[in-house]
């Protein structure tokens, strides 16, 4: 994840480059166990300094306490509720932001006037640090669910718009011409050539925007939340429960990884034609 507004268009990988998606197909690479030595050692060290009192629990709880806190909050339903609320916020915000990005990106990508009218303001607005808009959002939307959802939507919309737009703009003219020569109408060319050609770049945008979505949520939830993972964490802070704070952070991390894995799965299915 990156804190910038993620306005940069990263070119879609050509299939060869990029790190190979893990666990592809039959010949799954054996994980190299040597890579686990130092992470495990760090956890053991953490446990040891906690147990010896070198690291007081009001600064950071031991891994074992964190694990217990995770089990406890899950058992009481606290964690599950917070989880559902946060996922809901990201879900709604994402759908909202993605819809706007899709409509604007397609219109600006396909129509010359759309491009003239839509692209300049979006390119200008994307330079604003969107997390800095929180004070305005509180004034506009209050402190309820709305500012949080809107912050996610805003964070999602920019990277997705930029990638959809450039994906459509960079379609190979030669392919379009080949179908024109076959007598394809503008609409048919759109369906058969332009939109499929924009898919790889769009998926790059999707991945960026989901990363931003979680970041926006975390920031949004630290402001006056009365439910959700951010509330769980802030509430824990009041009682110096560093174990619960860490549980919340771990859940955020897992959610981020999970959405990324989903996009990778979609990419693998949708971009099969590019091979590994």
């Amino acid at each position: 994840m990156t804190i910038s507004i993620a306005g940069d268009v990263v070119r879609a990988p050509d299939g060869q480059g990029e790190s190979p998606p893990p666990g592809r197909g039959r010949r799954r690479r054996r994980p190299d166990l040597r890579r686990w030595i130092s992470p495990l050692a760090l956890v053991v060290l953490w446990q040891v300094v906690s147990a010896t009192g070198l690291l007081p629990p009001d600064k950071l709880s031991s891994p074992w306490t964190v694990l217990q806190a995770g089990v406890d909050t899950a058992r009481t339903g606290e964690l599950g509720d917070a989880f559902a609320v946060s996922v809901g916020r990201v879900g709604i915000g994402f759908v909202l932001g993605a819809s706007v990005a899709l409509v604007l990106g397609v219109v600006a990508g396909l129509s010359r006037w759309g491009n003239y009218l839509i692209d300049p303001p979006v390119q200008m607005l994307r330079t604003l640090p969107f997390l800095g808009l929180i004070p305005l959002f509180i004034l506009w939307f209050g402190i309820g669910e709305q500012p949080k959802v809107m912050l996610v939507a805003l964070g999602v919309a920019f990277p997705l718009y930029l990638n959809i737009h450039s994906g459509i703009r960079n379609v190979d003219d030669q392919l379009i011409e080949a179908t024109t020569a076959l007598g394809y109408t503008r609409w048919e060319r759109l369906v058969h050539v332009v939109l499929p050609a924009a898919v790889p770049q769009t998926l790059v945008g999707l991945r960026q925007s989901l990363g931003i979505a979680w970041l926006a949520l975390i920031v949004g939830e630290t402001v006056n939340a009365d439910a959700g993972l951010g509330y769980l964490i802030n509430n824990a802070r009041e009682f110096l429960r560093t174990d619960v704070i860490v549980v919340g952070l771990v859940v955020y991390a897992v959610l981020g990884l999970a959405t990324d894995a989903v996009v990778r799965l979609i990419e693998r299915r949708a971009l099969r034609w590019r091979g590994n």
């Binding site: 011409e177 020569a181 058969h192 034609w273």
Partner: peptide, 24 residues
Amino acid sequence: SVAFQQPRILPWRRVWRNVVLGLR
């Protein structure tokens, strides 16, 4: 029908689906 210097086939379609493009 036209065949160009570059094949200009759609990389995201299997070969036979590229061929039936010619049938509209």
